[in-house]
Design a protein around this nucleic acid. Structure first.
Length: 845
RNA sequence: GCCGCUGUGGUGGAACUGGUAUACACGACGGACUUAAAAUCCGUUGGCUGGAUAAGCCAUGUGGGUUCAAAUCCCACCAGCGGCACCA
């Protein structure tokens, strides 16, 4: 008998599968299609992380099972290769991101191929390939054409020392990661995508797809729909107005002050000096002087506060909520439209510019944050809803209205409706649906991304690059560092920047911003359907055949951004008639992170990184695959265990030993024209049927850990029933050809190399993945006999072996006859006897 | 801070819609084989009382509740993890 040698069999089958095109998907096959998708990796310099194979193995198991179930399966792979790390590496070393990326991809490819995944490599894509990003740019132009791409002034992180824009990740504790100087917010003209236009549908259509509950929940919350009213407050001695959004227009009589975000335009507009207005065509800011406005008296103080807020992140601003700060805009007052009361206006950084209108009406009596703020600054707290004690804290519950004129004695829901109507009638406000979701900042002032295909012409404004001129390729630059003006390094490439306007032919300048990493990943699953198409992003017939994705697995960390962005792009394309359905993914699941042995996130600096290459070298890919599935519940984070992997190694060695032996024995019998013995047939056969059922079901529910446990249990059963038979006292495992075949099939998606090798030893010439998935007999799965539990007051007192289908009457009778039960009853009369079929009898005394 | 999730032996975890808590695996301990070690095989293994493989009590983060019955449902609290829009 040969020893289990994963190295030999794994590379052997990997080569064979590639040669035989075993896992290639066929366009327009008559079989039903099944599209399995995993998030394509960013090919980092560190190589494959043991976390990657967790998701890939899971979907690989699904894909292989589906193939055996007769589907035409597509399970593609590609590279999400634009991104910050390659660029920062380039800044440090001068190595072109393209070169670094190519090298990393080669390494990733080697690593992935050594795992035995059934990827269809013929469809491989790479977001940094001009033939790919040509279509990313093309889709952007569609957004531009439809008015969903626009420019707006948005804050970026800015390091005043390095004079460059920073990604959020590069700001650590409010400081620039490179030099340690305090990072600031700085306004910059940015390309935006109007995702909010789709907020409604992104929310509603979640009902039509099968996403894991917590994934759908997180999306719903991220979109954050709320109904309420927008209310307009006038300002004393001014034509300016402040609009606020509130979900509680019923409390308007209790609004005793307003709070605006430090970024709110009213602050600039009420300051002395010219009103600054940005001219998008000329890319500059010009001054305009508003006439006869009132002025804030404590401008110095306000300006200082606004400046300080620039150095804080949104996170800090809301985190500091315990100690809320603010400054009153002295000398001006707002007018409450319902009662013409003059109320003070404050600026406070706990109000964020990005939500609602960037201004709120404060109702300290009925909002806890407002209440704390009012207590601190000694502002009026007025009760307008009964039911609480506003001296102690804000009352946020239901109740009837008081101190509210025409709303008095009404209940909250009615008051909301009445107030909204009242405001609408007088033009002071309106019913409004508000979303937390914000438009998507689509510009990056970076090198390693898709150039935004826009040409800025002095005469014509923003002009799209002609379709025939796509792709706008990334030019080589001398420096990868963003420029001191905050523009991308492309801005320094004068030759590249200077071009002609496609509309008027006059001199014009190229857009130098690039797209965010999310761009390429927002539509990659479409390109897989037709990855080599030169005429369009993908052939519409092929899209019709393959889309939508049947099952998409990825990380929880992508739930709100990537998942939402790609749904948005897809819906937009659906509206243009470019894709066949209105949702891209039928089913979405998530995997948990793999942590280091210390329970911490794996990272170089912690020194707890496990390299999959080393694991494969020591144990083989099949062991790594099964260990990653066995280590814990798939959707939860689990810590790596070097010891735990030993158990899986033993399991596969045992499987190899048992089956190579038994296959020889079966052949021996068959050669002699005898039927192999299958004594104890009943027990083992029933166990096998149970195993088939459990593994079949568990894969669908992504409960891979219990599926593996079941495979182990079966093997334990096989060994425990083995006997020595014959003259040479050979071990006999009581498995005939059919049993052996079925078990190997169950093992195949988990340990494809081992299973394929055993399959061949059984005498098959075609791949095991061309065979069919085993079925089971529901009758044989059922237990014949059960252990009936006898309880008294819910405590187990005795157990009886009885037929599984025992009747209620008989079970109760047996229970009361039990000696132990009689002892516990001690002559007392049972009050109640409860019978649970197939489980227990509980006697209540 | 906001949103989402998790908490069960020495460890990773199992327990389907409330119904035998601790499957499977790791580790530990004892034994077999071996000159020895590794590997392999067999046995024991939640805690406490007990000579016991007799009997019993206590255990699913903490405190309460619902129920004949709670790891599972409800309320409050504690701890940890993920996301928070320019990391991907």
């Amino acid at each position: 008998m040969t020893k289990y040698d994963p190295k030999r069999i794994e590379s052997k089958w990997q080569k064979k599968w590639e040669k035989m095109k075993t896992f290639q998907a066929r366009d327009f096959s008559e079989k039903e299609k099944y599209y399995c998708l995993i998030e394509f990796p960013y090919p980092s310099g560190e190589g494959l992380h043991v976390g990657h194979p967790r998701s890939y193995t899971a979907m690989d198991i699904v894909a292989k099972k589906r193939k055996m179930q007769g589907y035409n399966v597509m399970f593609p792979m590609g590279w999400d290769a634009f991104g910050l790390p390659a660029e920062n590496y380039a800044i440090k070393t001068g190595v072109h991101p393209r070169a670094a990326t190519e090298k990393n991809i080669a390494n990733f490819t080697r690593q992935l191929k050594s795992m035995g995944f059934g990827f269809d490599w013929s469809r491989e894509i790479n977001t940094t390939d001009p033939q790919y990003y040509k279509w990313t740019q093309w889709i952007f132009l569609k957004f531009f054409e439809k008015g969903l791409a626009y420019k707006a002034k948005m804050p970026i992180n800015w390091c005043p020392t390095c004079k460059i824009g920073l990604a959020n990740e590069e700001v650590v504790d409010g400081k620039c990661e490179r030099c340690g100087a305090g990072a600031e917010k700085r306004d910059k003209e940015q390309w935006m995508l109007r995702i909010t236009e789709y907020a409604d549908r992104l929310l509603k259509d979640l009902e039509s797809v099968d996403y894991l509950e917590r994934i759908a929940k997180q999306q719903v919350d991220w979109i954050g729909r709320s109904e309420g009213a927008e209310v307009e407050f006038g300002i004393t001695n001014s034509e300016l107005r402040i609009r606020v959004f509130t979900t509680r227009p019923d409390t308007l009589f209790g609004a005793t002050y307003l709070v605006v975000a430090p970024e709110h335009e009213i602050i600039k507009n009420l300051a002395s000096g010219p009103l600054r207005v940005y001219d998008p065509v000329r890319s500059e800011t010009t001054g305009r002087r508003p006439g006869g406005e009132s002025r804030v008296k404590n401008q110095g103080e306000v300006r200082k506060y606004v400046e300080a807020a620039k150095g804080k992140s949104d996170l800090e601003r809301s985190e500091l909520a315990k100690e809320k700060t603010g400054v009153e805009l002295k000398g001006i007052k707002a007018i409450n439209p319902v009662n013409n009361e003059e109320i003070s206006i404050w600026v406070a950084d706990y109000v964020l510019p990005t939500y609602g209108t960037g201004a709120i009406m404060a109702v300290p009596g009925h909002d806890q944050r407002d209440w704390e703020f009012a207590k601190k600054y000694d502002l009026l707290i007025r009760e307008v809803i009964t039911g609480g004690d506003i001296e102690k804290q804000a009352y946020v519950g239901d109740g009837t209205l008081v101190n509210s004129d025409f709303l008095n004695d009404k209940l909250v829901p009615e008051a909301i409706g009445d107030m909204t109507k009242w405001l609408e009638k007088r033009g002071m406000g309106s019913y409004q649906v508000n979303y937390k979701l914000r438009d998507w900042v689509f510009s990056r002032q970076r090198y390693w991304g898709e150039p935004i295909p826009i040409i800025n012409c002095e005469k014509c404004g923003h002009v799209p690059v002609l379709e025939k001129d796509l792709p706008v390729t990334l030019p080589d630059v001398e420096k990868y560092q963003p420029t001191e003006t905050g523009d991308s390094p492309l801005a320094a490439m004068d030759k590249w920047v200077r071009t002609k306007c496609p509309k008027c032919g006059g001199p014009a300048r190229r857009e130098t911003d690039t797209m965010p990493n999310w761009a390429g990943s927002s539509w990659y699953f479409l390109r897989y359907c037709d990855s080599k198409n030169k005429k369009s992003f993908a052939d519409s017939e092929k899209l019709k055949y393959w889309m939508p994705v049947d099952w998409y697995n990825g990380g929880m960390e992508h739930t709100t951004l990537h998942l939402l962005y790609s749904r948005f792009w897809y819906k937009f394309m659906y509206d243009l008639g470019l894709v066949p359905t209105d949702e891209p993914y039928l089913k979405r699941t998530s995997h948990g992170l793999i942590l280091g042995e210390d329970g911490e996130k794996m990272s170089k600096s912690r020194g707890n990184v496990i390299n999959p290459d080393e694991v494969i070298k020591k144990y083989g890919a099949d062991v790594l695959r099964i260990y990653e599935m066995f280590m814990g519940p798939f959707d939860q984070p689990v810590a790596w265990s070097t010891q735990g992997i030993e158990g899986v190694n033993r399991f596969l060695n045992k499987a190899w030993m048992i089956f190579t032996h038994q296959i020889e024995m079966i052949k021996l019998f068959e050669d002699r024209g005898e039927k192999p013995i299958r004594a104890k047939e009943d027990q083992l056969a029933r166990q096998l049927h149970r195993t088939v059922k459990k593994v079949t079901d568990d894969i669908e529910k992504m409960r891979f850990n219990t599926a593996v446990a079941m495979l182990m249990t079966f093997l334990n059963e096989v060994t425990s029933q083995a006997e020595k038979v014959g003259e040479e006292a050979q071990v006999w495992y009581y498995l005939d050809r059919d049993d052996t075949r079925d078990f190997i099939k169950l093992l195949a998606p988990f340990a494809p190399h081992l299973a394929e090798e055993l399959w061949q030893k059984l005498g098959h010439t075609e791949s095991i993945f061309e065979s069919d998935w085993p079925g089971y007999n529901e009758e044989l799965v059922k237990l014949e006999e059960i252990e009936l539990v006898l309880q008294i007051n819910g405590k187990v007192r005795d157990k009886l072996n009885v037929p599984a289908d025992i009747s209620e009457e008989k079970a109760k009778k047996l229970a009361l006859e039990s000696e132990k039960i009689r002892k516990w009853l001690a002559g007392k009369k049972p009050k109640q006897v409860i019978f649970v079929a197939g489980k227990l009898v509980n006697i209540v005394v």
